[in-house]
Structure formats: C-alpha cells, structure tokens
C-alpha cells in the first residue's frame, strides 16, 4: 500500500511532465528533448531557492518560470535560427546541464531540513486531523505525510489539467492546436506560427520544470542527473494514456496523460518490487515506447494484408 501511494504520488507529479511532453510531441509534433534538461532545471532552481529559505510556493513558481525560459530558447533556436527540431532541444538540454550545476553549486542539493510544499502539506494535514501520525484508509495505515502529499499533488495536477483544458478552448489555445494540425492554414488566418510555437514550447517546458520542482520537494533533494531519460518516460505515459482513453478529444487526452503517468509509475513500482534490476528500467522503458510507436502501424499492415492461402 505504501508502495502504491508512493508510486501514485510520483506518477501524479510526473503527470505534469507527461502534459508537457503531450503539448510538444502531440500538439506540435515537435520532438522536444529539452525536457531532460528543463525538469532538472525546475528542480535545481526550486531546491536552491528553498535552501536559501524562500517561500516554497515562490520557489516552485520560479522553477516553472525557469522552464519557460528554457523552452523559449529552444523555440528561438528552431524558429529564428532554423536549427532542426531535435538539435535545438539537444543544444539547450546540453547547455542546461552546466547551467543546473551552476545554479546548485554542486551536483546534489538536499532539502531534508527545509520547508517545502511537501512539509507544508504535512503541517496542514496534521492540523486538520489533529494529531495521529497514521490515518486509517480502508483498513490500511497510511502515514499522514504520504496522505498529505498525495492529496496536495492530486489537487495541483487537477488544477493544472483543468487550466490547460480551459486554455485550449481560448482563442489563443485553439490557434495553438491549429498550428500543430495545419500550420499553412493558421498562417493564412493571420497567426505567426513561430510565435505560437515558441509560446507552446515555453508552456511545455514550464510544466516539465514544475514537475521537476515538485519531484525535488517530494524526494527531498535535487540532483543534476535526475532528468536523464525523462522525455521517454513522459512519452511512455502519453502513449499509455492515449490507449487508455481512446478518443481524440483534448479533454480526454489530458486526463489520459495523467492516468497514463500514474499507471506507468505503478507498473514500474510493481516490476521493481518483483525484482527487476533498476539499472534495466530505462532500457525497458525505451523498448516499451518503441513497441508502442511501431505496433499500431504493424497491426494495420497485418490486418490489411491479403490473407495468404493456407499452406497445403
């Protein structure tokens, strides 16, 4: 149970990563590798500010803003300097590694004794429930910290998901979706495709950095290596989510990305519990994304291929 709660909390936090990846990969069809760097950037900025005793909410917002700056730079590299999409992301991601080290001043910033959003949530919860260290949820003892963090993260992700959904219904958000769908058309309707792409990448990386910021506060440290492979994890969540909800409607896909992220983390937790070597995790994730990307096309081919006459 504790395992599942932990996995769900991480899954919810990384749902923000999944939403960011959904925005760049699916809305714009832009394979944005910046994510690996921007999730660490969010963690680094927030952790450093927390270590300097800033208010957790402000430190978290600063992490979000830093991610937006990173996304803007990737967007500028691609649109203004005509650098290939993947390469723009790789350049910014690589540069961010040094930037993150500079921000943190060392490769790892612990937050165990700092006030974070997690510790604040715990305080609120213990005030509300007045005392007991453990809560009884459906017969399981759950520590008040886990419970507080889980509900706090859930509330935040629901809020972000809802805001994102509402954003996509506004004039600007509709134009953003159309930019990914048919850039020629939206240009003919007077929208600067470059501007919208930069804005979208800023938003995407802001969300991803927010995930990093929350992850650092949840696990109690920021580490310069923590972003490696995150794009693929986010993509895995998005793909799982798409197969969970099926439809193409934007609201469903947002819910799907969140659900996909949670399910993915739970699967990972269970697999690790069963004795999967943690070192193999990224290999298996990459393999999974490969299969998920290739399988639909293969299945179609398989179905449409004329049935071969049975061998005599």
């Amino acid at each position: 149970m504790i395992l599942l709660i932990g996995a769900t909390s991480i899954g919810l936090i990384l749902a923000l990563l999944a939403l960011g990846v959904y925005l760049s990969f699916r809305i714009f069809n832009f394979p944005d590798i910046t994510a690996d760097g921007s999730i660490t950037l969010g963690a680094a900025v927030t952790a450093t500010l927390l270590a300097h005793h800033w208010a957790p909410a402000v430190a978290t917002l600063a992490g979000f803003a830093a991610g937006m700056v990173a996304g803007t730079i990737t967007g500028l590299l691609h649109t203004k300097f005509k650098i290939n999409e993947l390469l723009s992301g790789i350049l910014v991601m690589t540069a961010l590694y040094s930037v993150n080290l500079h921000i943190m001043g060392k490769s790892n910033v612990p937050l165990l004794n700092e006030s974070t959003l997690a510790s604040q949530a715990e305080q609120v919860a213990s005030y509300l429930f007045r005392g007991p260290a453990d809560l009884n949820v459906l017969g399981w003892p759950v520590s008040i910290r886990d419970f507080a963090v889980l509900s706090g993260v859930l509330a935040l992700v629901v809020l972000v998901g809802l805001l994102l959904y509402l954003f996509f219904q506004t004039n600007l958000g509709t134009a953003m979706r159309a930019t990914g769908d048919n850039p020629q058309m939206i240009r003919a309707l007077g929208v600067s495709v470059d501007y919208i792409l930069i804005l979208g990448l800023a938003l995407s990386n802001g969300l991803i950095a927010l995930a990093g910021s929350l992850l650092a506060q949840y696990q109690g440290f920021a580490d310069v290596q923590m972003g490696i492979g995150m794009v693929v994890w986010g993509l895995a969540s998005v793909i799982i989510g798409e197969s969970l909800v099926g439809g193409r409607r934007i609201g469903l896909l947002i819910v799907g990305a969140v659900m996909g992220s949670i399910l993915f983390r739970q699967l990972v937790a269970i697999a690790l519990r069963w004795g999967l070597n943690p070192n193999d995790l990224k290999l298996i994730t990459a393999g999974f994304v490969f299969v998920a990307l290739v399988a639909p096309a293969l299945l179609r081919k398989f179905k449409s291929a004329p049935a071969k006459p049975a061998a005599a």
Partner: peptide, 16 residues
C-alpha cells in the same frame, strides 16, 4: 471560429 478572428489578436478570450 479560428477564421472568425482572421488577422485579429488572439488572447485568452473564450474561443467558441
């Protein structure tokens, strides 16, 4: 709805 704002600024107003 996109065409109804051709060439006009697009902000956070409700689209449809």
């Amino acid at each position: 709805a996109l065409a109804a704002r051709r060439g006009q600024p697009r902000g956070l107003g409700w689209g449809l």
